Simulated scan of single mutants.
Amino acid sequence: MRTFSAKEGWPAVRAGWADRLPEADLAALDEAVAFAARHHGGQTRPAGEPYLEHLLEATRVLVEAIGSTDVDVLRAAVLHDVVEDTDGTLDEVRARFGDRVATLVGWVTKPEGGARADYLARLRDAPDDALLVKLADRLSNVQRLDTHPRPAKRGAYYEETVRTILPLAARHPWFRDWFETWRTEFRGLADER
């Protein structure tokens, strides 16, 4: 099962994409990464890694696994948690990055006070580009789920992914195959509930 990492940081990831993306798109990504880094600040993931690594991992999935070169989709991947997990707003994203990026970020942002199950169900109607961002986000979240410090969270997140994300991944062959392999390799997590 292929995994994605971004421990080396944005400059190294950016250098690796110089032959895949035009300089203007890389510069547009520079701006999105700086915006996300400023908003996420010192946030870390449950296993302690800097939050920005997750955002870059999701973006790497899109570029390196499925070959996406759509800069708006890539910027949305970098920004996908700004509204949900920081004080950043969708209006701020729209003003800085445009309507399309804001719309994609909006699709993958759980509404404040909204039920998680409703949010995940709504994704069935998401436009394809928004779904790609969500699938890349979830892949980054679950690729090392066995390292999450809380066993109950591992089990619940495994079950939620199998129940709600695998059906969404069926629309995209690369994601479908990756998540099927993941489900098999991580099936022991289902017992950790």
Rank of each mutant, 00 (worst) to 15 (best):
T181G: 13
R144S: 14
E185T: 15
P127I: 02
R187K: 10
T184D: 11
D137F: 02
R144H: 15
T161M: 00
E159M: 08
F179Q: 05
R183A: 14
W174H: 09
Y158F: 15
A169I: 00
F186Q: 11
R176G: 03
K153Y: 13
D129S: 11
E160S: 14
A136E: 06
K134S: 07
L166Q: 07
F175G: 01
P167Y: 01
W178R: 01
P149C: 10
P149K: 09
F175Y: 15
L123F: 07
A136Y: 09
N141W: 06
A156R: 15
N141Y: 06
L123V: 04
D177N: 12
L123T: 02
R163H: 12
D129V: 09
A170H: 13
W174P: 09
D128T: 08
T147W: 09
F175P: 00
F175N: 00
Y157M: 11
N141C: 10
V133T: 01
T184L: 10
V162G: 01
D137S: 03
A136G: 08
D177W: 07
F186K: 03
W182C: 03
L131V: 08
L131C: 10
Y158H: 08
A130P: 03
T161S: 01
D146C: 05
K134V: 03
T161V: 11
W178D: 04
T147Y: 07
L135D: 08
V133D: 04
F186W: 05
P151C: 07
P167D: 07
V133E: 06
D125E: 13
R163S: 11
T147M: 09
A130T: 01
W174T: 14
R124T: 12
L168W: 09
V162P: 03
F179S: 03
D125H: 11
L123H: 06
T184V: 13
T147G: 05
P127H: 04
K153H: 14
L145C: 08
L123E: 01
L168F: 09
W182A: 04
Q143P: 00
V133P: 00
T184E: 12
P127L: 01
R122S: 10
Y158W: 14
R163Y: 02
Y157C: 04
Y158K: 01
R154Q: 15
L166N: 02
P173H: 12
P173R: 12
T147S: 13
D129R: 12
W178T: 13
Q143V: 07
E185I: 04
K153L: 11
L135Q: 02
D125S: 13
R144C: 07
